[in-house]
């Protein structure tokens, strides 16, 4: 089910390509800003915080706040500094389980 977006896209010229976020597929405008496109597609939380595990979403859109962190190919990236490409498989940055030696 596609969530209702709180954003409106003024222009809809660019071709749509499939992008996965957290296992769900979205059709996003190719070449557009990944963070903006995901928010416009209805994504709320991009990452979980590391201590309290609460959701965060893009805050500054200019690469400074690090609240739009996602995982792409196992590497942590800022979604607001990425472009939509076909077939991107994006995971929200999740809280790491804290653990002592025994659990490693």
């Amino acid at each position: 089910m596609k969530p209702v977006s709180r954003f409106e896209e003024l222009e809809s010229g660019a071709p749509r390509v499939p992008v996965r976020f957290g296992g769900q597929e979205y059709q996003l405008a190719e070449g557009s800003n990944l963070a903006a496109a995901l928010m416009a597609a209805g994504v709320d939380a991009f990452r979980q915080t590391s201590h309290r595990g609460v959701g965060r979403a893009p805050f500054c859109m200019m690469g400074a706040c690090f609240d739009c962190l996602v995982l792409v190919n196992g590497e942590t990236r800022q979604a607001c500094l990425m472009e939509v490409e076909t077939g991107l498989d994006v995971q929200p940055a999740r809280r790491m389980r804290e653990g002592p030696y025994a659990s490693r």
Partner: peptide, 25 residues
């Protein structure tokens, strides 16, 4: 201010400049 759905006014402006995306209300 850390909740999803809260961003800076500048961030909203960047979304408009870069992506042509605006918040509805």
């Amino acid at each position: 201010w850390t909740l999803p759905g809260v961003m800076t006014a500048g961030a909203a402006q960047i979304m408009l400049k870069q992506s042509g995306i605006v918040a509805r209300e």
